[in-house]
Every structure is written in structure tokens, then in C-alpha cells.
């Protein structure tokens, strides 16, 4: 297996606050990686640096062997690096199916052969069906429930046809059965060959999903390995429960 994503010595500061301090991370193709850490540990900042929403001052990010530094976010998405947002950020004036249409128009169509308008309609319907929103395709995001909003967020990220998907707290605030829904969905995507990084606070979900677990604390990586071993690591336990 080759590494699809290589993060080398990435550092990010906000004024005097060190948000990320020399992070190293390699993700293998097809892997399911869990990324955990207490609030404010730099998980979302790391995602933002990987996706180009923020620029890292130090280090570099490679995707499929290609250096991403300085590349704007939209170009990274076109390369196959998609993310869902921690708080769902739907396009509120567009319908559910139009929300999914945007990445189809701007990534899939920008990549190889253009899809016909019927092709786009089909792909839209397929993606909406994949997340189970087919009955709400013409609804506006304001009329969706929290769990549907998360599903839309994932469908939109998937529409870009990514090779790597970063799901930033896709399950926060959901009920037990809703978490199961999203977990099943992510596993199905992974079976299709999509590498997934899951950022989550809900430990049962992370533990059942991840093949490997990485822990960030105060902008530093303190553990990286098999989930069962990582959660027994004294440093990790200390970070969550206090020493």
C-alpha cells in the first residue's frame, strides 16, 4: 500500500498561540484513520491545513506524491481531497439536489470528460440515494433535520468523487441510531476504495470504525497506532482524564 497523504512537520500559529507543532502523519490508500483529541487540540486546524482553507507556515502536505503547498482549496478538491464541515455548511438558497450538483459541476466536470446534463442528473440522484435523502431531493436545507443535514454534507463531499474524504465530526449531536446510519455510510464509501479520515469525539464510533488511531493534544501528535493500544497509552489517558 502506498501513502495517499503525507503530512510532514506541519506547523501553524495563530499569533502567539501554537495550534500545530511539527505534525507528521502518513495515511495509506484505502485506510480508515481515526483522529481524536480534546477540544482545541488542533484537529480542525490540521484538516484546514490539509484542505487549503488555512496555509501552514511550516512543513508540507503531499497528496498522492504531489506537494500541495500554496494550492488553493478548490484545486485540492479537484485533485480528490474532499472534506465535510464540522458544522454543516449547506448552500441555503439551493435545494438538496442542487447542493450536490455544485461539486459535480466544478470538480468532476473540470477533471476529465464533461458530463452531459442528463449524466449530472443521474449522478445527483445516485449520490442522494446513497445517503438516503431521495425523498428530500427538492427540499431546502432549512427544512432538513440535523442528521439529514450531515448526510447532505457527506453527499456533497462525495460528489467531488474524492480519493480521500475527511469527515470532521460528522456525528456530533446525533442519536445512537443516527450515528449507526452515518457509520454504515462511511464504511460503504470505504469499501468503494475511498480513504477516510474520521475526526470524532464519540469514542464508540471511532473505535469501531478506525483501523488506526492518531491522538492530537495541544497541537502535538502524542500517539499513533492500533486503536486498542492507543487508548491504553498512559499519555492519552492523561490528556483526557488529567494526570
Amino acid at each position: 500500500m502506498a501513502a495517499i497523504l503525507e503530512v510532514e512537520q506541519v506547523g501553524k500559529r495563530f499569533g502567539g498561540f501554537v495550534a500545530l507543532d511539527g505534525i507528521d502523519l502518513a495515511v495509506q490508500e484505502g485506510e480508515r484513520l481515526g483522529l481524536i483529541g480534546p477540544n482545541g487540540s488542533g484537529k480542525s486546524t490540521l484538516v484546514n491545513c490539509i484542505c487549503g482553507t488555512l496555509t501552514n507556515e511550516a512543513g508540507s502536505v503531499r497528496f498522492q506524491g504531489r506537494r500541495l503547498d500554496g494550492l488553493p482549496a478548490y484545486k485540492r478538491t479537484r485533485l480528490g481531497l474532499a472534506r465535510s464541515f464540522q458544522l454543516p455548511r449547506p448552500f441555503t438558497s439551493l435545494t438538496v439536489s442542487e447542493n450536490v450538483r455544485i461539486p459535480l459541476l466544478y470538480t468532476v466536470n473540470a477533471r476529465e470528460h464533461r458530463l452531459t446534463s442528463a449524466g449530472i442528473d443521474d449522478r445527483c440522484a445516485e449520490l442522494i440515494g446513497l445517503v438516503g435523502l431521495q425523498d428530500k431531493a427538492e427540499a431546502r436545507p432549512v427544512d432538513l433535520t440535523q442528521v439529514d443535514m450531515r448526510k447532505l454534507e457527506l453527499a456533497r463531499a462525495m460528489a467531488a468523487d474524492p480519493k480521500l474524504l475527511i469527515a470532521d465530526e460528522a456525528m456530533a449531536g446525533l442519536s445512537h441510531s443516527e450515528i449507526e446510519d452515518i457509520l454504515k455510510l462511511l464504511l460503504r464509501l470505504n469499501e468503494r476504495g475511498v480513504t477516510i479520515i474520521m475526526i470524532e469525539h464519540i469514542m464508540s464510533a471511532v473505535m469501531s470504525f478506525s483501523q488506526r488511531l492518531v491522538v492530537l493534544v495541544s497541537g502535538r501528535k502524542i500517539a499513533d497506532g492500533a486503536p486498542q493500544e492507543v487508548v491504553r497509552n498512559p499519555e492519552v489517558v492523561g490528556a483526557y482524564l488529567g494526570q
Binding site: 478548490y74 464541515f85 449547506p90 438558497s93 461539486p103 466544478y106 456533497r156
Partner: peptide, 12 residues
Amino acid sequence: DDEFAAEASGVP
């Protein structure tokens, strides 16, 4: 609607 989300969806 949302410039960050637009950029993340591949919109230049």
C-alpha cells in the same frame, strides 16, 4: 451562500 463551502466544493 457560503464561500468556504463553495471553495471546498471545487468552486474557484
